[in-house]
Design a protein around this nucleic acid. Structure first.
Lengths: 347, 347
DNA sequence: ATGAAAGCGCTAACAG
DNA sequence: CTGTTAGCGCTTTCAT
């Protein structure tokens, strides 16, 4: 454990004071080129590393950004984090990561952890169970906050979403075009805006195509494969089961697919299935799954950019205005809805 | 932006000194219950939050742990991070994450970032291109370091690996048992210990079963699907192509599978395929892929535990001894090698 | 262009 | 049991 050198050591070596060293190291202040070079050289020789705790304490800036997601192992979130991390790291920030595991309590706790660590800003996506968002609003009064994907409505908080309504309409358009008529919906909890929008888009789509909106075809749940199978079980015990399912997530869709396999239901012939997220696995399963691409990495990047924007606004002493960015989703048609199977043509 | 209160404010309110407050807040020191309660109450009322920068500066402890992986979007790594994050977060640490993108330069840079942020320890997995590991060794002289999965040999550094040799032997055992005789190997770069061990295990397995070790059946590469397809192309232009392929990663195996599909080669009849990692998608593709489970989440947890161990050793003033933990891999037999297809029986 | 001095908020010896 | 004191390493006026 070698002891690290400080600006005092450098000062001693060069024969000036610590304050002069500090200035020389930061470049911006007026200092003679000679001393600056001497300082730089000495710093090099001593293997000087600036003590971030000290400067953080002094300046109030930690160079830390927190990212809070339900779970890092979902490919949507890990891609988003990948995108954000790259942008933030390039801008000289370090990234802290926490998982809420879809629990509101955890979420609060982790956000608190960020506060204690003195992050300069946070990028977050809400957990499924999160209904009260007061603590987020509280937080965002103090520091920049950008929400992405799973957001709540608040004029004063920046967010990045995809146009989920639009996406769901596109999905129904496609299904209708393929001749599906009895389209069910397996949604997520509707207090999450994204899921709510998908639900609305689904309904709008049905109406647009003159299809019936049936309450008993609409479900709301956690993104759980087993739940999906249970729901399908009940649907297929009806005299008129659906001929297509719009799932609010790929994992739900996977559950539907498993159910179909177990019951020998032909996909896409007897049952069309659409997922949501374009998880990596959707293109590899059989039949490959029609889904909606959410541009996860780009969303992460955009979230990081908005946050950096806000931070720099604050440093310039301006009031940071909240912004929102909406990504236009892309329907990826694959075999699970391709009723007359032409040549497979992914992506 | 409400100004946050400090222990000085609390001290003033309760009518004692800051140092007494500090003791009261930390519980361990001898302090009367009365004052402690008064302090706690005042802290509550003032919404006191301890300033981590100040205490970090004073104590030299930041409560930060860095995790460095090639890419957070690989499910192996994101699961490992999930496991580690949970353990570390429970132990009161915050987790910083960086990606090396398999570049040694990035890796150095990110590790440096960790040093600047004054992390108390690092968990890392090497990038593919990393051949010089001096900067890791340098780092580990200063602070606890635990390597996992992609490690290098160094007595003094703790690591977590699976027994890759063992795993590869199991794979070959299984293939031999299924009657495959001409078994090729698509490996990763052999300077990565894990890949090297897999290679050795593969060879050992062949010898054990009296099968020929053919140099032109052995390849070394980056984990790239397209590369896999190219290699297979060349192998199947030989007069005696292989009847099975052991791939060092699931993504390589996926490339092999794609090749087989494009050439109408029957899997598992004509060609058996085994992957490595048990990525989520391997169980959903058709045919489902025989692979080796690496217990990614458990590895992450174990890495975190070893690191916490080392940190607590250091705090106790003991020399931290390096430990290694080896996970016994588990072969997951699925359809891509199940020559006589019995009832599907996953996991 | 450089130096002196003060202090960010907290903690840890040491006194009392 | 509680208070006093002295910094951790750095930045930042204000003087020189």
């Amino acid at each position: 454990m070698k002891k690290k050198s400080t600006i005092v050591d450098i000062a001693a070596r060069v024969g000036i004071t610590p304050s002069a060293v500090s200035k020389a190291l930061h470049g911006n202040t007026r200092i003679s080129d000679d001393t600056r070079n001497a300082v730089l050289k000495a710093a090099q020789e001593l293997g000087y590393q600036q003590n971030s705790m000290a400067s953080a304490l002094r300046t109030g800036r930690t160079g830390l950004i927190g990212i809070l997601v339900p779970g890092i192992h979902y490919s949507f979130f890990s891609s988003a984090i990948k995108g954000a991390e790259e942008v933030l790291s390039d801008a000289g920030y370090s990234v802290m990561i926490s998982q809420s595991k879809d629990s509101q309590e955890q979420e609060k706790k982790q956000l608190d952890g960020f506060v204690r660590a003195n992050v300069e800003g946070v990028i977050a996506s809400l957990g499924m169970e999160t209904k009260q968002v007061g603590f987020y609003q509280e937080f965002s009064k103090d520091r920049p906050l950008v929400l992405f994907d799973r957001v709540f409505e608040d004029e004063s908080i920046s967010n990045i979403v995809i146009d989920d309504f639009q996406a769901a309409v596109k999905v129904v358009d496609h299904l209708a075009e393929m001749g599906y008529r009895r389209i069910a919906h397996l949604g997520g909890y509707s207090h999450i805006l994204a899921f709510n929008k998908r639900m609305e888009g689904y309904k709008y789509g049905l109406v647009k195509h003159g299809l019936p909106v049936l309450d008993h075809f609409i479900f709301e749940s956690s993104p759980d494969k087993d739940f999906a199978m249970a729901v399908m079980e009940s649907l297929f015990n009806l005299p008129d089961p659906p001929d297509a399912v719009v799932a609010a997530s790929d994992y739900l869709a996977l559950g539907v697919l498993n159910f179909a396999k177990s019951r020998q239901i032909d996909v896409p012939g007897q049952l069309g299935i659409v997922g949501f997220s374009n998880e990596e696995l959707t293109k590899h399963i059989t039949p490959s799954l029609t889904t909606v691409d959410q541009f996860s990495e780009a969303m992460g990047q955009a979230a990081a950019e908005l946050l950096l924007d806000q931070i720099s606004c604050i440093h310039k002493g301006q009031e940071a205005v909240s912004q929102r960015r909406v990504f236009i989703p892309k329907l990826i048609v694959r075999d699970s809805t391709r009723r007359e199977l032409h040549l497979a043509n992914d992506e």
